[in-house]
């Protein structure tokens, strides 16, 4: 991500030539911005994680103590692991719902089914909406008394299904996942569609002569050929799922209401580092430790998984 700057080309007499100066001139501003706003915060968060904090004041160096506490000591450990579990559920469900539906939609759009042009725009529309708007909109839709969801169920006589969707532990996380999929399904759809459109039509025609089965065609021809798109979509979903914050924050609040059933690592990080005005205490050390763990986890898994998927692309 942070491209290392080329050392400015030296002229014959060791002076920076015009071209070198030009390159330096272009590279320095973004480098300064990156250092100041990306690298410095990451490095300082890393440093914070190794200190004990008393309110705002940094106290002694404590080594890996904060990491040990956040991962293995109560009351933090159980919250961390529960939040992590929820992140995994979110990732797995979105993988099936968001990417699965995304692929099906892309396939339908690619086959130019009826209304494809309209749907291509419609599917992508929520993606450009701000998460804040989506969160508030769906919070209203799920409103237990006046919400569209419950009102519609009542209107068609399904009163028994009326429930406080965001207020019970069995449905709250599922509701958030559904909203996320609704909002973002356009993204994998578009990426898959772009991948599908790159497949040469002669290839498909040739395959059709061999088989009548659509399923066979997808499995043997289409899927391997859109492998690069899948890599992108999978990795981005992975990063997004483990950094999940805005939607649960807006719809369920900082505590992951009800009673932690929508708590994810992003929310827990925020609560730990900055405190929760209505309930908590702030601790930069523990918060930073959690942030560092999240960063390392996402970076390492994403890297290895990308390498693995790239390799598979070649195998397919």
């Amino acid at each position: 991500m942070t491209a290392t700057p080329d050392t400015p080309a030296k002229g014959p007499r060791g002076w920076i030539t015009g071209r070198g100066a030009w390159i330096t001139f272009l590279l320095v501003p973004p480098l300064v911005v990156m250092t100041l706003f990306v690298i410095y915060p990451i490095v300082s968060a890393l440093a914070y994680a190794f200190y004990d904090w008393n309110g705002l004041r940094r106290e002694g160096f404590v080594g890996f103590e904060n990491f040990r506490i956040i991962l293995f000591e109560e009351p933090f450990a159980s919250t961390t692991w529960q939040a992590f579990k929820h992140n995994i559920i979110v990732f797995a469900s979105l993988m099936i719902v968001q990417n699965g539906v995304g692929f099906i939609l892309a396939y339908c759009l690619w086959r130019d089914l009826w209304g494809a042009r309209f749907h291509r725009v419609a599917v992508f529309l929520p993606v450009v909406l701000s998460t804040v708007i989506i969160g508030y909109l769906w919070k209203l839709f799920f409103h237990p008394i006046f919400g569209v969801v419950n009102q519609s169920l009542k209107a068609v006589g399904l009163d028994s299904l009326v429930q406080p969707w965001l207020g019970q532990s069995e449905t709250a996380l599922a509701a958030l996942i559904f909203v996320n999929a609704w909002a973002w399904v356009g993204f994998p759809t578009l990426v898959f569609l772009a991948g599908l459109q790159r497949i040469p039509s002669e290839l498909i025609d040739a395959a059709r002569m061999e088989t009548d089965s659509e399923w066979h065609l997808i499995r043997k021809i289409v899927w391997p050929l859109i492998a690069p798109s899948t890599t992108v979509v999978f990795i981005l979903l992975f990063i997004g799922s483990f950094n999940w914050f805005e939607l649960p924050y807006i719809m369920a609040g900082l505590d992951g209401s009800p009673f932690g059933s929508t708590d994810v690592l992003g929310l827990f990080f925020y609560r730990t580092a900055f405190g929760n005005q209505s309930a908590g205490v702030q601790d930069f050390g523990l918060g930073s430790a959690l942030a560092v763990i999240m960063f390392l986890f996402i970076a390492i898994v994403a890297t290895f998984w990308t390498l693995h998927l790239r390799k598979k692309e070649l195998d397919l």
């Binding site: 532990s169 505590d255 209505s278 309930a279 908590g280 205490v281």
Partner: peptide, 23 residues
Amino acid sequence: FRFQEPSGSVLIQAEVQRMLAGE
């Protein structure tokens, strides 16, 4: 009890929420 983690507020908020949800 709002000086250390878990603060009493964090606990009572979640526990009352859980109890009133019938869980």
